Lab assay of single mutants.
Amino acid sequence: MAAGGDHGSPDSYRSPLASRYASPEMCFVFSDRYKFRTWRQLWLWLAEAEQTLGLPITDEQIQEMKSNLENIDFKMAAEEEKRLRHDVMAHVHTFGHCCPKAAGIIHLGATSCYVGDNTDLIILRNALDLLLPKLARVISRLADFAKERASLPTLGFTHFQPAQLTTVGKRCCLWIQDLCMDLQNLKRVRDDLRFRGVKGTTGTQASFLQLFEGDDHKVEQLDKMVTEKAGFKRAFIITGQTYTRKVDIEVLSVLASLGASVHKICTDIRLLANLKEMEEPFEKQQIGSSAMPYKRNPMRSERCCSLARHLMTLVMDPLQTASVQWFERTLDDSANRRICLAEAFLTADTILNTLQNISEGLVVYPKVIERRIRQELPFMATENIIMAMVKAGGSRQDCHEKIRVLSQQAASVVKQEGGDNDLIERIQVDAYFSPIHSQLDHLLDPSSFTGRASQQVQRFLEEEVYPLLKPYESVMKVKAELCL
């Protein structure tokens, strides 16, 4: 049975990233139509530049190519590739079939990587351009969430054990800070992308030097003109047959890092959902379990974690691919890159769409948070109580021993009897502590235990987050809708 299948058929496997999760716009960027249309555009740009620099290419040939950029006979191309065992030459023939007058000058002087690699770089750039505003929107939604809850005390956790208090907004800023680093890295790697350009079979530009009869300047002009037509500021000066596969490492490393950030955020949300302090959106008709109707599973956060793990592992592909590119190139890269580049971007696209949807509907339960604080705060307040007693004339050592005994009794009630923490009640009825009984409410005010959390939130948002989001103001209103 021949390899390949009808990918629109229910009898043929289709990647869930495309069929179930990723956005239509990201799927289109990695589609065959987008790819092969870009090949034709690159052939047109090459012909236009070659004509401008004096090669015998007519206006009629150029116009014929322009008129057929979208006229792609995919069936013919597939048949040609089956016959020739070469995808680029299959599309040269297919393009030439609908451009008979231009057929002889299509791909003039070029090698397969002229269309293959340059198209990949265009796709990487455009895919990054799709991700950047999506990530900015996630940051914006979380920034709104953090600002609104900047002063809401909550129990902090280290080692997932109760620690000092923080605020809900401050905790959210930990998430935002990681995503801001990801946004900066995505922008950097996007701006650092260079075009492969017009380089020939081993990167020496020998074929173009021959076409222009040894004119170095025209060869350099050709490279520059096509690079500018493709919208790049610069091209690699040095290439082998391909652009260095280190570029793929750079791009997928940034995406993998984004995956790590999203995994951490969504894990926190899942843990908070278990504590009943916070939940992701839950639709009115949504079913959490087929057997347990009360369940409210954090399905979206779980999906993000599941896909983020996949995204983090994909960076190993370009690392290994770059390491086995012998001399000017081997074909070890080809099949692998067809999979890992598309999957990385479709996965990143999915987790950003999902995280935006989550961040637009996060639900906080202040009463649950308050109750958990009441359970733990008495123990945390013991040092403040000791200091207040010393100020009232008591002995630190005597007070410490009193607190120690009462704390152990209260802990026994919590752990052995399943009761509430009654340390404060014990202190309130103990005559030894009568000098500070009137101060206990103040000493137990949760806001006095959150330090500068709310001020940190305000400063972080104003100095770091809002300036970073400013270039994306025009796209901030787009909502994230999930079908599944």
Rank of each mutant, 00 (worst) to 15 (best):
C27P: 10
T354P: 05
L108H: 08
I237S: 09
R196I: 06
A78G: 12
S257F: 07
E328M: 01
T347K: 04
L355A: 09
Q286A: 03
F212V: 10
R396S: 04
M225R: 11
K147N: 14
L331T: 02
I369L: 10
G231V: 05
R190G: 11
T202G: 13
E80M: 12
M299D: 04
E464A: 07
S253H: 12
C99Q: 03
N297I: 01
I249G: 06
M389W: 02
F95E: 01
R303L: 02
M292Q: 03
S301K: 03
L352I: 14
K479H: 15
H217F: 12
R137E: 08
L84Q: 15
D223E: 11
S112M: 00
T267V: 10
L152V: 10
E50H: 08
D192S: 13
K477W: 09
V364T: 05
S447C: 15
I269E: 00
T321Q: 11
F460N: 00
D120P: 03
Y294G: 03
F327G: 11
P366E: 14
C113H: 00
D422V: 04
E376L: 03
H310D: 03
P293R: 01
N421L: 07
E213M: 15
P471F: 15
D120Y: 09
G203C: 01
E228H: 11
L165M: 06
V262D: 02
E48P: 01
E376A: 05
P100D: 11
C483T: 12
A335P: 08
D441G: 11
H442Q: 12
I249P: 03
L121H: 05
E213S: 13
T204I: 03
Q61V: 09
T94N: 10
L174S: 12
R20Q: 05
I427R: 04
T239V: 08
L121V: 15
S23D: 15
I106P: 00
A322H: 12
E328V: 02
M76N: 11
P378D: 03
L272F: 06
S438Y: 11
D11C: 13
R196M: 15
H263Y: 05
F327S: 07
M312S: 04
Y34Q: 06
S67Q: 10
T450Y: 06
C27R: 15
S112F: 02
K264I: 03
V198K: 02
M89K: 01
L130D: 06
Q428V: 09
R404A: 09
V92Y: 03
V88P: 05
E148A: 11
G169W: 03
K82F: 11
F282K: 08
Q356G: 12
L352K: 05
H93M: 11
M278T: 06
G197Q: 01
W45E: 10
Q51F: 07
R426Q: 09
